Amino acid sequence: MTTLAERVKQAQARIAHAAHQADRSADEILLLAVSKTKPAEMIRQAHAAGLNHFGENYLQESVEKIEQLRDLPLIWHFIGPLQSNKTRPVAERFDWVHSVDRLKIAQRLSEQRPAELPALNVCLQINISREASKSGVLPEQLTEVAAQIAKLPNLTLRGLMAIPQASDDPAQQRAAFAQMQSLLHQLKALHPTMDTLSMGMSGDLEAAIAQGSTIVRIGTAIFGRRPPLNKETNQRG
Rank of each mutant, 00 (worst) to 15 (best):
N121G: 07
L229Q: 15
Q112W: 07
E144R: 12
A132W: 03
I149V: 05
S198V: 08
V122T: 14
L124N: 02
M161Q: 03
Q125L: 15
E111V: 02
K188Q: 15
K188P: 06
L117H: 10
A106I: 02
D168W: 08
G136F: 08
A132D: 14
Q107F: 07
L205W: 00
L124T: 04
I128Q: 01
S135H: 14
L109V: 08
A162H: 06
Q148C: 05
E206M: 04
A171P: 01
M201Y: 11
R174C: 09
L120V: 14
D168P: 02
L160Y: 10
P228R: 11
L109A: 09
I126K: 04
Q211I: 08
C123N: 03
R130M: 10
S213N: 06
D168Q: 13
T196C: 13
E111T: 07
L109M: 14
D204H: 02
K231I: 09
H185D: 12
K231R: 12
A146Y: 02
R217S: 05
G136C: 11
R158V: 06
P192F: 06
Q125W: 06
Q165M: 09
D169A: 10
A175I: 04
A150L: 07
A210Q: 06
L142P: 08
T193N: 10
L138H: 05
K188H: 15
E116C: 07
L190D: 12
G200T: 08
I128G: 03
D169F: 00
I128P: 03
T193I: 07
Q125T: 03
T233C: 06
M180T: 11
R113N: 07
P170G: 03
A115Q: 13
S135P: 02
I105F: 09
R130K: 13
P139Q: 01
K134N: 00
Q107G: 08
G212W: 08
A106N: 03
A171F: 08
E116A: 12
A208W: 01
S133I: 11
G224V: 08
K231G: 09
P192T: 12
A208G: 06
